[in-house]
Simulated assay, not measured.
Amino acid sequence: MEVIQWTVAAGTALFVALVGFFQWRTAQDKAAFDLFERRHDIFQIVRRAVQQMVSSSPGFDQAREIEFTEMMERAYFFFGDDVHDYLNRLWNDIVDVRTADSEMAGGSLSPTELTEALGRRRKAMSRIEQFYKTGQPLFAKYMRFCRQLW
């Protein structure tokens, strides 16, 4: 009789430990997925900004500017310095393109100033267009799951 009680107690303890382990794994997976979702939201804002700049830079209005700068503040806490540095470079390029656009729209530039503005804009736009070659891989290394969920 005593052997049966010990066997039942050991089986119950093993079952409880197994349930606890699976709850821990589920909590780890949920935390990883929540982190992924927050990082993905940041990535989506960057991608939309790049798409807007490439398709029509004047369409990058003040609302997009605010959204982008707020995203940069959040990204500081979700990504490493490499992504943060990339976002700062991207923001500077966006500002360069928008500044050149507004300078050229004013029509008061001398031919030399116009050439400089166009050159600055072209270089910045070229770096923005490289998002899928340079920026996306930086984000990807933070967003890939290290373990198969299924």
Score class of each variant (00 low, 15 high):
F21A: 10
M53I: 03
A140V: 14
L14M: 12
F33H: 11
C146W: 11
D61C: 06
Y76N: 15
A75W: 00
R48Y: 07
T115M: 14
M71T: 02
Q5M: 12
H40F: 12
A49Y: 00
Q62F: 14
N88C: 11
M72Y: 06
R64M: 14
K123G: 08
Q28S: 10
A117S: 07
V8A: 07
A17S: 09
A32L: 10
T12A: 10
G80K: 04
R89W: 06
R64I: 06
A63N: 15
I4L: 13
D82I: 04
P111L: 05
G135C: 02
L138E: 03
G135E: 00
S126G: 12
R144I: 09
R147N: 12
G59A: 09
D29A: 15
F131A: 00
F15D: 04
L109I: 04
E70I: 11
R89T: 08
A140P: 05
L114E: 08
Q130E: 11
V50K: 01
F78E: 05
F22L: 09
Q44S: 15
D61K: 08
R121W: 04
G59N: 14
V46P: 00
A31H: 14
G80F: 02
P58L: 07
W24N: 13
S110Q: 06
L118K: 06
A117K: 02
F36V: 05
A32S: 10
G80V: 02
T99D: 14
T12S: 11
I4P: 05
E70R: 11
R48S: 10
